[in-house]
Design a protein around this nucleic acid. Sequence first.
DNA 1: CTGAGAATGATTTTT
DNA 2: TCATTCTCAG
Length: 726
Amino acid sequence: MSLHLEHLNPEQLAAVTLPEGHALILAGAGSGKTRVLTTRIAWLLREGSLSPAGVLAVTFTNKAAREMLTRLTAMLAVNPRGMWIGTFHGLCNRMLRAHHQEAGLPRSFQILDSQDQLAAVKRLLRSMNADEDRFPPRDLQYFIMGKKEEGLRAGGVPLTDETTRRNVELYAAYDEQCRREGVVDFAELLLRSYELLSRNEPLREHYRARFRHVLVDEFQDTNRLQYRWLKLLAGPGASLFAVGDDDQSIYAFRGANVGNMADFERDYRIAKVIRLEQNYRSHGNILDAANALIAHNAKRLGKNLWTASGAGEPLRVFEAQSDADEARWMVEEIRALKREGTRLDQIAVLYRSNAQSRVLEHSLFSASLPYRVYGGLRFFERAEVKHALAYLRLMASPADDNAFLRVVNFPTRGIGARSVEGLQDAAKAGGRNLYETALASPGKAAPFVALIEALREECAGLTLAEQVELVVARSGLLTHYKSEREGADRIENLNELVNAAAAFDSEERAAEAGEDMDPLTAFLTHAALEAGEHQAGEGQDALQLMTMHSAKGLEFDAVFVSGLEEGLFPHEQSLLDRDGPEEERRLMYVALTRARQRLYLSFAQTRMLHGQTRYNLPSRFLDEIPQGLLKWLTPRFAEKRKPVSNFTAGSFTRAPKRDPRFGGAPAGTGGAPGAYRIGQNVSHAKFGAGVIVDAEGQGTDARVQVNFGRQGVKWLAVAVAKLQAA
DNA sequence: CTGAGAATGATTTTT
DNA sequence: TCATTCTCAG
């Protein structure tokens, strides 16, 4: 077993070889975090009396868990199978499957993903005759998820106001519905597992005795419940080893609590936090920029990245006339990079929101540059795949009303809304699930029930893949999509589902589900917990397009950080939140630290958003990077903001209609000299630099709306405000 | 049940 | 702008 400890730097080595006890590792971007985590496990196994069964390592994504397992397999002589390595959800699922009885769950409980959960919430609201307009299903879903992630059941939520009281009532009803139907949502996996451990002492002691070392990756992303789960599981004799980077905490909006890091330090009396600050990824200028930027955040544990490699190139900055102009420029730069020998899959274009990819895709398509967009629907989330899975779920778990309703009339078989409502009423009256009800008095649903019954019988003795194949064919899904114009892709996905089942059958089953679980339930669990790839075509040499969020954990030779405009990035919505601006800055930090050698920053004066032209100011983040690190490819905006002359109050002209041939830039036919023009840069004594975004009124009543970026968007009376052209 | 047209609303996202 | 979701006529 070769750990290559000699290749570790002193801090990495210190982290890897820490004696028993709790530890907090502050691991900067590109500092070899995964390596430390895996080498630590290997070292513990080699040095101590620890056996693989004593290790529990938890990550957030399946990808990270796989990566860890792969590296360990390469490093170790022992079979890593005995370890518990997985995501929070995967490990909780594993525990709940093993103790489903103690946890109060049916053997083949099904897992609701967010889509399923929303459907369940909608159905609940309808069955309780709730006013969907006053109580949007999404809000309730968010409420329930949030409370569960705080570790609260309906009974434990303080009733602060009328809305909360109502939500709590619905939360309780939702949990009851889930119980009846034998399903659990994502947050429930964690909460149920937590409750099981806290309630059941023998079980808790069993696991505590077993897991001597608990290791957590991306600790800054844990929510309150996850931290409590860890604390419960890591008993008095165990060591909790947490690795994280508070500067890369970008998921507060979905419940992550960076505060867990400081809490951990205090709760476990961590004497010395180990900082991994040597970066093995980026050139010096990139790190200097990132360090300077993140220094603007007040709430930090503190850390400064450095590199032993050289300063490298300056960061290139481009100011575009418009979003289309920005895209054209990127295409040119990418072509140049390609000519110089950079592979396309080593170049990433990052943006704040998915909507920004459209213009870019348009340009790339015209330029015939192959690209791959991350985001969007994943394999197991596609409608046709979910339909097929619903049939399978109903076979495995007839109480699953969600699954029943999804496919009872898909493909259509004459069971309309009427019949379904009748069934739902009868089910409610009889206190039974829909499938049982339909089985007892079939009515219009007779063909459907007969189909499911027949499928169940015919599946006996078949392999998993054969079962899936049979269901896809006999359900009528294949026929249905064959007759559809755009059905080819969907049919391909259904075939792919059969392949996935075959692959799962042979390889993954034992690993994921464990011992005595039936293959079908194991596969359905796999589908729920691992939504699969976003898009096929991985491994082809294509440009990588993604949000800055999805880029976390990745690295590229060259990175474009686009749309650096106030309102877009930092996003205007984020400014409403108290901690929003700091989280946006951390996101920028993540974006910058993705680049190995070359980093481009760009922004546009004009951008199409929601069907409207927006005039944004350059992002504050550009000001927060030392100018000496930047190389402006266009004149630096600050230099152009010299006052020319005072405007005279009175006239303005609407910006002339933009000509698409000029990339949406003002066509330059402006109004009279001294007139206000929409899109005009101005400056104000108090608010500073701004852009005119709208105007109204005439003469002395004339008012203009000016976007002052971080100072906000304001209407100003032209006669009063002394605006200067800038 | 289907398709057309209206209404709606639009950061970020893994499990 | 544009994709999704809803409503209503046929």
